[in-house]
Amino acid sequence: MTTNRAYAVELKDVNIYYGEKLAVKDVNLSIAHQKITAFIGPSGCGKSTVLRSINRMNDLIPGAKVEGDVVYRSQSLYGRDIDAVEVRRRIGMVFQKPNPFPKSIYDNVAYGPRLLGIRDRKVLNEIVERSLKHSFLWDEVKGDLKKSGLALSGGQQQRLCIARTIAVEPDVILMDEPCSALDPIATQAIEDLMKELVKQYTIVIVTHNMQQAQRVSDYTAFYSIRKEVETEGKEKRWGVLVEYAPTETLFNQPSHEETERYIRGEFG
Protein backbone atom coordinates (compact mmCIF):
# COMPACT_ATOMS: atom_id res chain seq x y z
CA MET A 1 0.00 0.00 0.00
CA THR A 2 2.71 2.43 0.85
CA THR A 3 5.19 1.44 -1.80
CA ASN A 4 4.93 4.62 -3.77
CA ARG A 5 3.40 7.16 -1.46
CA ALA A 6 5.01 10.04 -3.33
CA TYR A 7 2.81 9.20 -6.25
CA ALA A 8 -0.96 9.15 -6.11
CA VAL A 9 -1.55 7.67 -9.55
CA GLU A 10 0.82 6.24 -12.12
CA LEU A 11 0.01 5.81 -15.79
CA LYS A 12 2.13 3.23 -17.56
CA ASP A 13 2.18 2.90 -21.34
CA VAL A 14 -1.42 3.98 -21.60
CA ASN A 15 -3.10 3.84 -25.00
CA ILE A 16 -6.75 4.86 -25.22
CA TYR A 17 -9.06 3.95 -28.08
CA TYR A 18 -12.54 5.02 -29.04
CA GLY A 19 -13.69 2.02 -31.02
CA GLU A 20 -11.02 1.43 -33.62
CA LYS A 21 -9.69 4.95 -33.37
CA LEU A 22 -6.56 5.58 -31.35
CA ALA A 23 -7.09 8.67 -29.21
CA VAL A 24 -4.03 8.80 -26.98
CA LYS A 25 -0.78 6.89 -27.32
CA ASP A 26 1.96 5.87 -24.92
CA VAL A 27 1.27 8.03 -21.92
CA ASN A 28 3.66 7.53 -19.01
CA LEU A 29 2.99 9.78 -16.09
CA SER A 30 3.30 9.72 -12.31
CA ILE A 31 0.98 12.10 -10.50
CA ALA A 32 2.46 13.43 -7.30
CA HIS A 33 0.65 12.90 -4.01
CA GLN A 34 -1.12 15.99 -2.63
CA LYS A 35 0.12 18.23 -5.39
CA ILE A 36 -1.68 19.94 -8.22
CA THR A 37 -0.87 18.55 -11.64
CA ALA A 38 -2.04 20.47 -14.69
CA PHE A 39 -2.70 18.98 -18.14
CA ILE A 40 -2.29 21.49 -20.94
CA GLY A 41 -2.23 21.21 -24.69
CA PRO A 42 -4.10 22.14 -27.86
CA SER A 43 -7.70 21.07 -28.50
CA GLY A 44 -8.00 17.43 -29.42
CA CYS A 45 -4.71 16.36 -27.83
CA GLY A 46 -6.48 13.92 -25.52
CA LYS A 47 -5.76 15.57 -22.18
CA SER A 48 -9.38 15.17 -21.04
CA THR A 49 -9.38 11.60 -22.29
CA VAL A 50 -6.34 10.81 -20.14
CA LEU A 51 -7.96 12.54 -17.17
CA ARG A 52 -11.13 10.49 -17.57
CA SER A 53 -9.14 7.27 -17.79
CA ILE A 54 -7.89 7.90 -14.26
CA ASN A 55 -11.31 7.32 -12.67
CA ARG A 56 -12.67 5.10 -15.40
CA MET A 57 -15.25 7.63 -16.62
CA ASN A 58 -14.33 6.44 -20.11
CA ASP A 59 -16.09 3.18 -19.29
CA LEU A 60 -19.36 5.04 -19.81
CA ILE A 61 -18.55 5.75 -23.44
CA PRO A 62 -19.46 2.77 -25.63
CA GLY A 63 -16.39 1.40 -27.40
CA ALA A 64 -13.83 3.21 -25.25
CA LYS A 65 -10.87 0.99 -24.36
CA VAL A 66 -7.79 1.54 -22.25
CA GLU A 67 -4.55 -0.40 -22.77
CA GLY A 68 -1.58 -0.32 -20.43
CA ASP A 69 -1.86 0.27 -16.77
CA VAL A 70 -3.22 2.93 -14.45
CA VAL A 71 -1.88 2.22 -10.98
CA TYR A 72 -3.40 3.62 -7.82
CA ARG A 73 -2.14 2.48 -4.42
CA SER A 74 -0.19 -0.31 -6.12
CA GLN A 75 -3.35 -1.60 -7.72
CA SER A 76 -4.14 -1.61 -11.38
CA LEU A 77 -7.40 0.32 -11.81
CA TYR A 78 -8.26 -1.71 -14.87
CA GLY A 79 -7.62 -5.04 -13.14
CA ARG A 80 -10.22 -7.73 -13.41
CA ASP A 81 -11.46 -7.56 -9.83
CA ILE A 82 -11.58 -3.78 -9.62
CA ASP A 83 -15.04 -2.20 -9.47
CA ALA A 84 -15.29 1.10 -11.35
CA VAL A 85 -17.80 2.30 -8.77
CA GLU A 86 -15.19 2.05 -6.04
CA VAL A 87 -12.57 3.74 -8.23
CA ARG A 88 -14.83 6.75 -8.76
CA ARG A 89 -15.60 7.06 -5.08
CA ARG A 90 -11.85 7.31 -4.33
CA ILE A 91 -11.00 9.40 -7.38
CA GLY A 92 -13.64 12.09 -7.71
CA MET A 93 -14.35 14.38 -10.59
CA VAL A 94 -15.41 17.98 -11.21
CA PHE A 95 -16.67 18.79 -14.69
CA GLN A 96 -16.26 21.61 -17.13
CA LYS A 97 -19.80 22.90 -16.89
CA PRO A 98 -21.14 23.16 -13.34
CA ASN A 99 -23.63 20.30 -13.11
CA PRO A 100 -25.45 20.35 -9.78
CA PHE A 101 -28.37 17.95 -9.51
CA PRO A 102 -31.83 19.55 -9.75
CA LYS A 103 -32.14 19.17 -6.00
CA SER A 104 -31.52 21.26 -2.91
CA ILE A 105 -28.00 22.32 -1.92
CA TYR A 106 -28.20 19.94 1.01
CA ASP A 107 -29.28 16.98 -1.12
CA ASN A 108 -26.55 17.73 -3.66
CA VAL A 109 -23.84 17.42 -1.06
CA ALA A 110 -25.49 14.53 0.80
CA TYR A 111 -25.95 12.58 -2.44
CA GLY A 112 -22.55 10.86 -2.38
CA PRO A 113 -22.69 9.81 1.29
CA ARG A 114 -26.24 8.57 0.79
CA LEU A 115 -25.06 6.43 -2.12
CA LEU A 116 -22.70 4.78 0.32
CA GLY A 117 -25.64 3.98 2.57
CA ILE A 118 -25.26 6.71 5.18
CA ARG A 119 -28.77 7.57 6.38
CA ASP A 120 -28.19 9.04 9.86
CA ARG A 121 -29.40 12.65 9.68
CA LYS A 122 -26.81 13.86 12.21
CA VAL A 123 -23.89 12.35 10.33
CA LEU A 124 -25.19 13.74 7.04
CA ASN A 125 -25.60 17.21 8.56
CA GLU A 126 -21.99 17.11 9.69
CA ILE A 127 -20.72 15.95 6.31
CA VAL A 128 -22.70 18.63 4.48
CA GLU A 129 -21.49 21.40 6.76
CA ARG A 130 -17.87 20.26 6.63
CA SER A 131 -17.86 19.86 2.85
CA LEU A 132 -19.47 23.23 2.24
CA LYS A 133 -17.00 24.87 4.61
CA HIS A 134 -14.09 23.18 2.83
CA SER A 135 -15.30 24.52 -0.48
CA PHE A 136 -15.73 28.07 0.84
CA LEU A 137 -19.46 27.99 0.17
CA TRP A 138 -20.84 27.59 3.68
CA ASP A 139 -21.04 31.28 4.57
CA GLU A 140 -22.96 32.05 1.40
CA VAL A 141 -25.55 29.29 1.67
CA LYS A 142 -25.77 28.19 5.30
CA GLY A 143 -29.14 29.92 5.83
CA ASP A 144 -30.68 28.39 2.79
CA LEU A 145 -29.61 24.78 2.34
CA LYS A 146 -33.05 23.86 1.02
CA LYS A 147 -32.66 26.17 -1.96
CA SER A 148 -32.19 24.44 -5.32
CA GLY A 149 -28.56 24.02 -6.34
CA LEU A 150 -29.55 25.39 -9.74
CA ALA A 151 -30.52 28.72 -8.20
CA LEU A 152 -26.87 29.51 -7.33
CA SER A 153 -24.54 31.53 -9.55
CA GLY A 154 -22.17 29.70 -11.90
CA GLY A 155 -19.17 30.04 -9.59
CA GLN A 156 -21.20 28.96 -6.58
CA GLN A 157 -22.54 25.99 -8.53
CA GLN A 158 -19.01 24.90 -9.34
CA ARG A 159 -17.99 25.19 -5.68
CA LEU A 160 -21.11 23.19 -4.81
CA CYS A 161 -19.91 20.51 -7.23
CA ILE A 162 -16.54 20.51 -5.49
CA ALA A 163 -18.26 20.26 -2.10
CA ARG A 164 -20.29 17.35 -3.43
CA THR A 165 -17.10 15.64 -4.61
CA ILE A 166 -15.20 16.01 -1.34
CA ALA A 167 -18.24 14.86 0.66
CA VAL A 168 -17.32 11.25 -0.17
CA GLU A 169 -13.72 11.93 0.95
CA PRO A 170 -11.83 10.89 -2.16
CA ASP A 171 -8.03 10.78 -2.41
CA VAL A 172 -7.75 12.37 -5.78
CA ILE A 173 -9.90 15.06 -7.41
CA LEU A 174 -9.91 15.29 -11.19
CA MET A 175 -10.97 18.65 -12.59
CA ASP A 176 -11.84 18.92 -16.26
CA GLU A 177 -11.49 22.62 -17.16
CA PRO A 178 -13.44 23.62 -14.04
CA CYS A 179 -13.21 27.35 -14.71
CA SER A 180 -13.85 27.54 -18.43
CA ALA A 181 -17.50 28.48 -17.93
CA LEU A 182 -16.83 31.00 -15.17
CA ASP A 183 -16.03 34.71 -14.97
CA PRO A 184 -12.61 35.89 -13.66
CA ILE A 185 -13.81 36.49 -10.10
CA ALA A 186 -15.42 33.07 -9.81
CA THR A 187 -12.29 31.58 -11.39
CA GLN A 188 -10.17 33.28 -8.76
CA ALA A 189 -12.35 31.77 -6.03
CA ILE A 190 -11.94 28.26 -7.48
CA GLU A 191 -8.18 28.67 -7.78
CA ASP A 192 -7.92 29.81 -4.15
CA LEU A 193 -10.01 26.82 -3.20
CA MET A 194 -7.73 24.45 -5.09
CA LYS A 195 -4.68 25.76 -3.26
CA GLU A 196 -6.47 25.05 0.00
CA LEU A 197 -7.75 21.62 -1.03
CA VAL A 198 -4.35 20.40 -2.13
CA LYS A 199 -3.29 20.24 1.53
CA GLN A 200 -5.54 17.18 1.78
CA TYR A 201 -6.15 15.97 -1.75
CA THR A 202 -4.24 15.21 -4.89
CA ILE A 203 -5.59 17.37 -7.70
CA VAL A 204 -5.31 16.89 -11.44
CA ILE A 205 -6.66 19.73 -13.55
CA VAL A 206 -7.14 20.00 -17.27
CA THR A 207 -6.97 23.60 -18.40
CA HIS A 208 -6.88 25.62 -21.57
CA ASN A 209 -5.55 28.56 -19.68
CA MET A 210 -1.77 28.48 -19.41
CA GLN A 211 -1.72 31.29 -16.85
CA GLN A 212 -4.00 29.21 -14.69
CA ALA A 213 -1.66 26.25 -14.95
CA GLN A 214 1.25 28.51 -13.95
CA ARG A 215 -0.67 30.08 -11.08
CA VAL A 216 -1.96 26.95 -9.39
CA SER A 217 -0.07 23.84 -10.41
CA ASP A 218 3.03 22.18 -9.07
CA TYR A 219 3.56 19.95 -12.09
CA THR A 220 2.48 20.38 -15.66
CA ALA A 221 2.02 17.84 -18.41
CA PHE A 222 2.01 19.12 -21.97
CA TYR A 223 0.13 17.05 -24.54
CA SER A 224 0.18 17.50 -28.26
CA ILE A 225 -1.15 15.96 -31.44
CA ARG A 226 0.58 13.58 -33.84
CA LYS A 227 -0.70 13.09 -37.37
CA GLU A 228 -0.16 10.53 -40.02
CA VAL A 229 -1.60 10.53 -43.50
CA GLU A 230 -3.14 7.13 -43.92
CA THR A 231 -4.41 7.28 -47.46
CA GLU A 232 -5.18 10.15 -49.77
CA GLY A 233 -7.19 12.78 -47.86
CA LYS A 234 -7.56 10.58 -44.79
CA GLU A 235 -5.61 11.50 -41.71
CA LYS A 236 -5.00 9.71 -38.46
CA ARG A 237 -4.61 11.89 -35.37
CA TRP A 238 -3.76 10.94 -31.83
CA GLY A 239 -2.54 12.64 -28.72
CA VAL A 240 0.77 12.13 -26.98
CA LEU A 241 2.37 13.36 -23.80
CA VAL A 242 5.25 15.57 -24.94
CA GLU A 243 6.71 16.82 -21.73
CA TYR A 244 6.05 16.45 -18.04
CA ALA A 245 7.97 18.53 -15.49
CA PRO A 246 7.62 20.78 -12.47
CA THR A 247 5.53 23.73 -13.62
CA GLU A 248 8.32 26.26 -13.24
CA THR A 249 10.72 24.18 -15.27
CA LEU A 250 8.19 23.46 -18.00
CA PHE A 251 7.29 27.09 -18.48
CA ASN A 252 10.77 28.56 -18.09
CA GLN A 253 13.12 25.94 -19.53
CA PRO A 254 11.03 23.59 -21.64
CA SER A 255 13.16 20.78 -22.97
CA HIS A 256 11.11 20.33 -26.16
CA GLU A 257 10.84 22.86 -28.89
CA GLU A 258 7.12 22.02 -29.34
CA THR A 259 6.42 22.88 -25.72
CA GLU A 260 8.20 26.16 -26.08
CA ARG A 261 6.23 27.08 -29.19
CA TYR A 262 2.97 26.16 -27.48
CA ILE A 263 3.58 28.21 -24.35
CA ARG A 264 4.69 31.15 -26.47
CA GLY A 265 1.26 30.92 -28.13
CA GLU A 266 2.44 29.91 -31.57
CA PHE A 267 -0.13 27.17 -32.02
CA GLY A 268 -3.05 25.48 -30.30
Partner: peptide, 24 residues
Protein backbone atom coordinates in the same frame (compact mmCIF):
# COMPACT_ATOMS: atom_id res chain seq x y z
CA UNK B 1 -24.00 15.91 -17.31
CA UNK B 2 -26.35 14.72 -14.57
CA UNK B 3 -25.51 11.09 -15.25
CA UNK B 4 -21.79 11.87 -15.30
CA UNK B 5 -22.02 13.78 -12.04
CA UNK B 6 -23.75 10.84 -10.41
CA UNK B 7 -21.30 8.26 -11.76
CA UNK B 8 -18.43 10.54 -10.82
CA UNK B 9 -19.51 10.39 -7.18
CA UNK B 10 -19.39 6.62 -7.19
CA UNK B 11 -23.01 5.80 -7.95
CA UNK B 12 -23.83 2.45 -9.50
CA UNK B 13 -25.80 2.43 -12.72
CA UNK B 14 -29.00 1.60 -10.90
CA UNK B 15 -28.45 4.34 -8.29
CA UNK B 16 -27.93 6.82 -11.10
CA UNK B 17 -31.08 5.73 -12.89
CA UNK B 18 -33.21 5.67 -9.76
CA UNK B 19 -31.98 8.86 -8.12
CA UNK B 20 -31.26 11.09 -11.11
CA UNK B 21 -32.47 9.85 -14.47
CA UNK B 22 -35.97 8.72 -13.50
CA UNK B 23 -36.90 11.79 -11.42
CA UNK B 24 -35.69 14.08 -14.19
Amino acid sequence: SIREASFGLGATRWQTIWNQVLPA
